[in-house]
């Protein structure tokens, strides 16, 4: 669709290997929420054999099985420079679950093996002895607004943040980064990581629009996004928050 208005270029990293928690739902949200506003999304899919384009406005890294994540980690570590450069210039980066871990310094598995990260976020992850699974609700403050964000988590990693980034949010329900400090996710300028799937964005349209606003700003386009009819989103969000408050 050509509208004369700027298109957002999204780089979807490793869609064949990192897609375990329905990451394509997040991509669909980016696409539709732009289309409903007369804007468009171009997606560049980057696999093991491709290089990473430096000129995208939005980079997305999803979650994978351990086996796939190990494969991707080595590959990404070797070719991440264009991604680092784009992030420095103001491109938006979103990492979910395994993708969140890969944005940090690295992941140490239970057997001591270490998976490299790319160090875009100042955080370190080590495997815990049991998986942290369940509904999550947290308060997120971005662009000076605080909103409730809902999702589902399922991860063995325990993530601890360094001084170079801040938590994405503070938990009302769920385990979050490590099950101990009440924090979930991480953010540094426009680089965002989180354990939340479900997928993340369909039930959190406010967060989707914050990320799209940043991407549009980086693309030199309009930043004030028109309001959409988010009735379904709001009810689904409320249902998920209620489920999180119930003992299951």
């Amino acid at each position: 669709m050509s509208t004369g208005r700027p298109a957002i270029r999204l780089c979807h990293l490793y869609p064949d290997h990192l897609n375990i928690y329905a990451d394509r739902g997040n991509i669909a949200v980016f696409r539709r929420r732009l289309e409903w506003r007369g804007l468009s999304l171009e997606v560049a899919e980057v696999g093991l054999g491709d290089s990473i384009p430096a000129d995208c406005h939005l980079y997305y890294l999803g979650g994978g099985q351990d086996r796939d994540q190990m494969l991707v980690a080595e590959n990404l570590a070797q070719k991440a420079d264009p991604l680092r450069g784009a992030a420095e210039d103001g491109a938006v980066v979103l990492g979910v679950c395994g993708g969140y871990q890969l944005l940090g310094h690295g992941y140490t598995a239970a057997d001591g093996r270490r998976m490299p990260g790319i160090g875009l976020l100042d955080l370190e992850t080590t495997a815990g002895d049991r998986r942290l699974i369940g509904d999550v609700v947290l308060d997120v403050t971005l662009n000076g607004q605080t909103r409730k964000v809902v999702g589902y988590e399922n991860h063995a990693g325990r993530t601890h943040l360094g001084g170079g980034c801040t938590p994405l949010g503070h938990l009302r329900r769920g385990h979050g980064n490590n099950g101990e400090d009440g924090c979930e996710g991480a953010v540094a300028t426009r680089i965002v990581g989180t354990y939340l799937h479900g997928p993340l964005l369909p039930k959190n349209p406010w967060l989707a629009d914050v990320l799209l606003g940043w991407a549009l700003d980086h693309a030199g386009g309009p930043v004030d996004l028109e309001l959409l009819d988010d009735n379904f989103e709001e009810v689904a969000h409320a249902v998920a928050a209620t489920r999180a408050g119930q003992k299951r």
Partner: peptide, 23 residues
């Protein structure tokens, strides 16, 4: 179902007109 609205979102973002959907 319990998560009817999640399914509604699945079809909304899949490209199905919400006006034609009963939740």
């Amino acid at each position: 179902g319990d998560r009817a609205y999640d399914m509604a979102l699945r079809f909304r973002y899949g490209g199905f007109d919400p006006v034609r959907m009963s939740v």
